[in-house]
Design a protein around this nucleic acid. Sequence first.
DNA 1: TTGTAAGCGTTATCAT
DNA 2: ATGATAACGCTTACAA
Lengths: 366, 366
Amino acid sequence: MAAGRPTIADVARAAQVSPSTASVVFSGKASVTEATRTRVLDAAASLGYTGPDPRAASLRRGSSGIVGVVFEEHLGSAFRDPIKAVMMDGLADGVAPLGAGLLLLRDDAGANDAGPGESAGAALPAPSLRSAPVDAVVLVGCSGRLTESLDAIRGRGIPVVVIEGDAGPGVPRVELDNREAQRHAARHLRTLGHQRVAIVTLPFEADRWRGWVEPDDGRTPTVEVTRDRLAGARDVFPDARVYAAGASLIDEGLAAGRVILADAAARPTAVIAQSDLLAAGVVRAAEELGLSVPGDISVTGFDGITVDGFAPYELTTLVQPAAEKGRAAGTIVTRMIQGLDVASLSFTCTFRVGNTTGPPRGVTQD
Amino acid sequence: MAAGRPTIADVARAAQVSPSTASVVFSGKASVTEATRTRVLDAAASLGYTGPDPRAASLRRGSSGIVGVVFEEHLGSAFRDPIKAVMMDGLADGVAPLGAGLLLLRDDAGANDAGPGESAGAALPAPSLRSAPVDAVVLVGCSGRLTESLDAIRGRGIPVVVIEGDAGPGVPRVELDNREAQRHAARHLRTLGHQRVAIVTLPFEADRWRGWVEPDDGRTPTVEVTRDRLAGARDVFPDARVYAAGASLIDEGLAAGRVILADAAARPTAVIAQSDLLAAGVVRAAEELGLSVPGDISVTGFDGITVDGFAPYELTTLVQPAAEKGRAAGTIVTRMIQGLDVASLSFTCTFRVGNTTGPPRGVTQD
DNA sequence: TTGTAAGCGTTATCAT
DNA sequence: ATGATAACGCTTACAA
């Protein structure tokens, strides 16, 4: 009895009540006489008992109060992405009714957790998707090689929802009208009179390749967001030249802008960037070349974040409800846990005209 | 037996082995005949058993493979701070030997988890510090009102380490030589010949107050980092004017810079900013006013991050080993879990001269 | 190599 | 309002 940490049984004994009564004192799940409660609390205090062991409680209850979050990319990158940051805030909100914490998970499908028995020697406990004590899982992006781990999770009956990605049939999704939204921005440019337009995309693949994408390359973005926004832009400007950035960063947009705007003869009059950070970089590139925005070049972004240090520019952009997306994901898994039925959800961007777009030189607006 | 999800006992029965053998097949903790393993795995597959329940395993083993991370501020802010992002990367590395996942925790000391019995009615499961199934906790910053929850955690024998903060005696710390480092940068400016210097600090408090800090205010930063870096700057320039920013952002630095540099007569020749983002903002403010950096104004930063979109400027700054700090925290809790003894660790910044500092106008360097 | 048995600490159910 | 009892699903000595 005096061996390890005190248990609720020790407390109960010391307070001369039954374990169940002691338990109730801590959980508040039923009413207890004030006197009894005090006795239990005092006993706990004097034994140094600080409350029920979460592991045991979680086994007994069948739930852990933890929601796993899986990012496609390296943790550091995910943290730096402003949209993801806001989304996480929303998600934290959304799972609040569960009282759940968020567990950052990486996908270890192939690695040290490669399934039963494989790693007979190395006894690494597995932190991964497959073996985490989660009540639900939120996937942020989903490139398809998660499927293995995902099956294990779903096989266990754990609710899964994916934000911006396709995790296969039966996995509810939280989506954005990327294509329609991007088309909207493109139409705005066309209406202003732009004809020669270039597109700066988010990464095509997980790798950091960057450069022109030629029509005969056969390159197709594996990243859904990239693909959909690209499709939207091409709906309006099928022949626009496409430059893929290596990441969503101002510096990447700057590099892209330098290339795209370099040749005065072939210079586009407008650039459609797939993120606000990229757009900000393109604007900087224009500045560098002595071009005025939107006088010489119009630039559109995507996301609707506040680009730190970019004032007084205000991007013409698609404002996406990032926090709402996160919150929705939280709500969906909450409902799933409660056994309620759920449906995928699609969010809509709001087009916001800033001061980075205008008619091309020589064209006057009606 | 066919009730809920299959358990390892069901699998064992189906494979006609004992539960312990089945367990071993999944954990790899001992050797099993190939034939037996196959039988177990097949049985598992046909029953739809996807592996041991993490909750039960964690109770039995006495550890969950989860390390809690507590931020002082709102999740979103933490995510946006580049230093914290890098630190999290390092931390993820550092706990890798544990195979642990990172659980984002907020501190609920006073809230719905306010201790035993208080919330008899509302039966919210608690996601908080006190009741999370963690093997260890890493505090990022620590403003002292955590103490309550902290005692509970430590009372349970869970290792705690704090990065940049003081969590009381007995809690090992990972620290930075903020004061010495900042002093180093200040000396650099003095050596260049600067006499009139202004300081832009990180927030004094958790709130977002910003403005001049007058000597007779009696204001003292409650945030340790702010206080230490301020002390370092004042070691060299005791009479420097101090302006507190509301957050570590370019836009905040810009706002501060506008105020500080506004009055040409009282204008400092150098600005010591407590973060790179603030410094970048001050540089932008100088540009706005037509001042050249470092010709008219020298600016130093702190952190040594790459400020996205700030090239070709390269800040004169203190490069802090953010990833190493995170990794060290991970290593420390790992050792604590193993029962080894640990000591606090202090890291040192590297002073890096960029192109944002130079001698003040009229002073020529030897 | 495989099996037996004893918990891990809690909470839910059902009586009292 | 309180108590007795039975799981929750797994792991690990220890024995065979």
